[in-house]
Design a protein around this nucleic acid. Structure first.
Lengths: 205, 205
DNA sequence: TTTTTTAATGAACAATGTTCTAAAAAAAAA
DNA sequence: TTTTTTTTTAGAACATTGTTCATTAAAAAA
């Protein structure tokens, strides 16, 4: 009988509507201003029902964070149009920056906020697979660059960490509003220019 | 009569003890876990008294944030032992990283957390002078490098932003715990190695 | 001593995440 | 169809939070 299947489907639907609403409110008002009661009200359930689907607020936002990684991957895939790994690497950086600037709240959740990592720490010895996969992908592209002699550097891990850090730094200064109130010209422009300088440094190395 | 002077002094003492306690608790337990009631209890005042000295919790932590900048400047001053501006620039980066790794909570408050900036936004058209001064100092050192032909780059602002972003990115990935759960080797080590690579890129440009 | 100004308090408010017990609904068994 | 069992939902309750406000205590001025 398909009754139990329907129940599973209903549970999944409820879960999905919680996530969709949480995400909507989060993008609209931010993490702290998105309350369990807000979410519950919008999906017309009681607050306590939400706790049958998620351990706590952090788990909800950990899940959204994971979904956001799927979107980032979709962005990054566009880099594979480039045959030359150096071109691909630079495209990767540009797309990463583009994703962050177009989805600052999601980027925040993925790479700055503590909530998702707090939930991860609650699960014992759980790895941050979303981050690890993205970093491994970056590493593989850089490895190609090295292999083809486009970059001469032996320490793959450190170079990858440097490149990630650089684009991460470029966008987080902006996202956490340290760039605005410092008298800089338009944030997006300076990020693009800074990345261009960094690309030149890399290519000529 | 010195009576009003004493009262001013007493007010300042109270203010200072609020700040000292807030800072102590913050370094121990973090921002959110440091409550107004915690602070009040420790200095043996009622919670409401604190609001006679500070508008809200954000103002307390904005003040601590400003004090932390004085400490950062103390760190950075050590870079002036170098005559060669390129050496100074690299020392600047290393000291900046050192400060962040030795005072991760303070660094968080200064460059990542939203609380101080939220308070700044409450004051209308207030500039982030602490950040601006630090950035201007960095710019001046880089300007010296350009002037002496050690770096060939016309866009001073973008290059400065790039260098700041890079060291900021290096340390924030670690501070917000994205480096740990990714299977990286020791965070401090990889940060040092990555910065060394970056230094080489800069020097050879 | 009396008046006025200043400082400090304690109670109270609204909002939060979360838990727990009881009710309602649905499914399974009789 | 009726009864029993299981699952789902709700509502009340708890402890905490930042913050405000009327009232009391203290200190300074007159």
């Amino acid at each position: 009988m398909g009754v139990s299947e329907r129940r599973i489907r209903e549970r999944l639907d409820a879960r999905q509507s919680i996530l969709a609403t949480a995400r909507e409110l989060f993008l609209l008002k931010g993490f702290e201003a998105t309350t369990i009661r807000n979410i519950a009200e919008k999906i017309e359930y009681s607050p306590s029902t939400i706790y049958q689907h998620f351990k706590d607020k952090n788990e909800i936002f950990y899940t959204i964070h994971s979904e956001a990684f799927a979107e980032l991957v979709r962005y990054l895939n566009a880099s594979e149009m480039h045959k030359n790994p150096m071109d691909q690497l630079i495209a990767l950086g540009q797309i990463y920056i583009q994703f962050a600037l177009e989805n600052p709240e999601l980027y925040d959740l993925m790479f700055i906020m503590e909530a998702p990592i707090d939930f991860l720490n609650y699960l014992e010895d759980a790895n941050w697979i979303e981050g690890k996969m993205a970093f491994d992908y970056l590493k593989s592209v850089i490895a190609n660059c090295i292999q083809q002699g486009l970059i001469k550097e032996t320490d793959l891990e450190s170079l990858s960490y440097l490149i990630w850090s650089t684009v991460h730094g470029l966008v987080t200064i902006s996202i956490r509003k340290r760039g605005l109130k410092i008298g800089l010209s338009d944030p997006d422009t300076i990020i693009q220019r800074s990345f261009a300088i960094f690309s030149h440094l890399l290519v000529k190395s």
